[in-house]
Simulated scan of single mutants.
Amino acid sequence: MNVLIAVDMEGISGITGWNQVLPEKDEYARGRRWMTADVNAAVAGALQAGAERITVTDGHWDGSNILIEELAPEASLVNGSPSPLSMVQGVQNGVDAAVFIGYHARAGTQNAILDHTWSSLRIHNFWLNGSLAGEIAMNAAVCGSFNVPVVAISGDQNACAEAAALIPQIRTAQVKTANGRMNAECLSLERAHDLITSTVREAVKNFRQVKPYVLTGPISFAIEFYRSDMADYASLLPGSKRTSGRIVEYNAPDILEAAQAFRAMVGMVKV
């Protein structure tokens, strides 16, 4: 069995603020250790379920956050940026099931730790096929294009709820309860790791019960940026359509082109 563990940082156990997830901040070193420990808990669960190959993809910031010297030896690590499939790089390599660790809710979600969609400094709202969406939906859809189900997720209560609304069969490990954007009641790391391990174990063991999240083409998306000059830059992408002062739309034949166009558009924008 081949398992992909796709990892973000804002939903990691114990994380509640930007100072723990941004490289220039003083608490980032602690955040990296917590992130690596959550990953190892997920690796343990996948191994207990019979996984023979485990790929861990570091999807936060520039993809160089997980401490490889502390990573479980049974896993390989995809790190660095950019990569063709970004946060779920590796899903194209015969993966049977994907697990999302440390994920966060989409931009604008109430009581969600560090809620944002891709860029907290650029994107105000994001719609995928007309529905408000975040990184969970985008990455799950990319996995779905390879017929890979997302079987488990860890994060706060609203990240878990967002995933469950898309994938009813998904198993969730709620490691904290957010009271706002930067305050949460967090499980102890020991309890959080036990929860992640047991959740991933059961999810991977029963991965055939989960249907891939598939969005058939054509695919449309729209980004509402924070400022109109950001939309000025984004609308330079060939194929894009400016629909208002801050909103740029794009139509693609499939989710893979849509995901690449989305990344290119956001990357063109100056903060």
Rank of each mutant, 00 (worst) to 15 (best):
M1V: 11
N2D: 14
N2I: 10
V3W: 01
V3P: 06
I5E: 08
I5P: 07
V7C: 11
D8L: 15
M9Y: 09
S13T: 14
I15W: 07
T16F: 14
T16A: 11
P23F: 10
A29H: 14
R32H: 08
M35R: 04
T36K: 10
N40E: 00
V43P: 03
A44R: 12
G45L: 01
G45V: 03
Q48R: 15
G50T: 03
A51M: 07
A51R: 03
A51V: 09
T55D: 05
T57W: 04
G59D: 05
W61R: 12
G63K: 04
G63S: 10
N65M: 05
N65S: 15
I66S: 03
E70L: 14
L77S: 04
V78G: 03
L85Q: 08
M87R: 03
M87P: 00
V88W: 04
V91A: 10
Q92L: 12
V99W: 00
F100P: 01
Y103L: 03
R106N: 04
R106F: 00
N111C: 12
D115Q: 12
H116W: 00
H116Q: 04
S119T: 08
R122I: 07
L128I: 06
G130F: 12
A133E: 03
A133T: 06
G134W: 01
G134C: 06
N139V: 00
A141P: 02
A141G: 04
A141I: 05
C143P: 01
G144Q: 04
N147M: 13
V150S: 02
I153W: 02
I153F: 01
D156C: 09
C160G: 11
C160R: 02
A161N: 15
A161G: 10
A165W: 10
Q169L: 08
A173D: 06
T177N: 13
A178E: 01
A184K: 05
A184M: 09
E185G: 12
C186W: 09
S188D: 14
R191Q: 15
A192M: 02
D194K: 15
L195Q: 07
I196G: 00
I196E: 00
T197I: 08
T199M: 09
T199W: 07
V200Q: 02
R201V: 00
R201S: 04
A203S: 12
K205R: 15
K211S: 14
F221L: 10
A222Y: 05
E224K: 14
R227E: 11
S228W: 06
D232T: 07
S235V: 10
L237N: 00
S240K: 03
S240Q: 07
K241I: 09
K241H: 08
S244H: 07
E249D: 06
Y250R: 04
Y250Q: 02
Y250W: 10
A252S: 15
P253M: 10
L256R: 13
L256G: 07
E257C: 11
A259W: 03
R263C: 06
R263N: 09
A264R: 15
M265D: 05
M265R: 03
V266M: 11
K270R: 14
V271E: 13
